[in-house]
């Protein structure tokens, strides 16, 4: 078990955003979390990465309790978080953005090795290494956001809606990249609105509804569940 979340509760003032959420991720898996807007998906990722503090519950990463650690400490242990909405430094180049992503990596030679690895996954970024990030196309920006997360060679890569705002052809490309990254040995925790595609590439899935886990199981099984099809895949059933 690489990640274990136990009975996590998160409150924002009066809003109970996460209610007794428990979840497990095995090493080597792609696990996806799907759910409507406001279900608490981003809050869950933010709590795991230390940005939001839970009111109760436990988060264990590779045997270590990380529940109340700050974001830098969590990142140093090997969890990368690619946030919603491709946040990046628009006025820095692609290369500079990637170097910022490697701020926790020790030694220039290691940074260079990681950069080569990232460029081999995203050759397009190598071509654009001196372009300002703000002038990249939407698809390229999303690739850069993921690449930046990969620069610290995380053991667990968490992504919040990587397909948002991308043309269909790029959505396919991004999901293909996620699969590739996972095959190379990175465990993936994926929050996605595109439930069709997420359930296709994930091994297991959790459905979050108004802050609580509604159902979980093998992704293929959830994809064929009529209730899930109706509520989350937009299919007209019956």
């Amino acid at each position: 078990m690489i990640l274990q979340v136990e009975n996590l509760n998160v409150n924002y003032g009066g809003i109970h955003a996460l209610k007794d959420v428990s979840l497990e991720v095995e090493e080597g898996e792609i696990v996806t979390i799907i759910g409507a807007n406001g279900a608490g998906k981003s809050s869950l990722l933010k709590t795991i990465s230390g940005i939001v503090k839970p009111s109760s519950g436990k988060i264990i990463f590779m045997g270590q309790d990380i529940t109340r650690k700050n974001p830098d400490a969590v990142a140093a242990l090997g969890i990368a978080h690619v946030p919603e909405g491709r946040k990046m430094f628009a006025n820095l180049t692609v290369l500079e953005n990637l170097e910022v992503g490697a701020f926790l990596v020790q030694g220039q030679s290691q940074v260079r090795r990681n950069l080569e690895m990232v460029y081999s996954v995203f050759p397009r970024l190598k071509e654009r290494s001196n372009q300002l990030a703000g002038t990249l196309s939407g698809g390229e920006q999303q690739m850069l956001a993921i690449a930046r997360g990969l620069m610290m060679r995380p053991k667990l890569l968490m992504m919040d809606e990587p397909s948002l705002g991308l043309a269909p052809v790029l959505v396919n490309a991004i999901f293909e990249k996620i699969r590739e990254i996972n095959r190379e040995g990175t465990t993936v925790l994926l929050v996605e609105q595109n439930a069709h595609k997420a359930l296709k590439i994930a091994h297991r899935a959790y459905v979050l509804e108004t802050g609580g886990i509604l159902i979980s199981g093998p992704a293929a099984q959830l994809a064929s569940n009529p209730m899930i099809q109706k509520a989350y895949l937009g299919k007209k059933v019956g």
Partner: peptide, 13 residues
């Protein structure tokens, strides 16, 4: 301009 960005299939329906 991209009103359904960030919505799941049910929400975009």
């Amino acid at each position: 301009d991209e009103p359904a960005a960030g919505m799941n299939p049910q929400e975009s329906a």
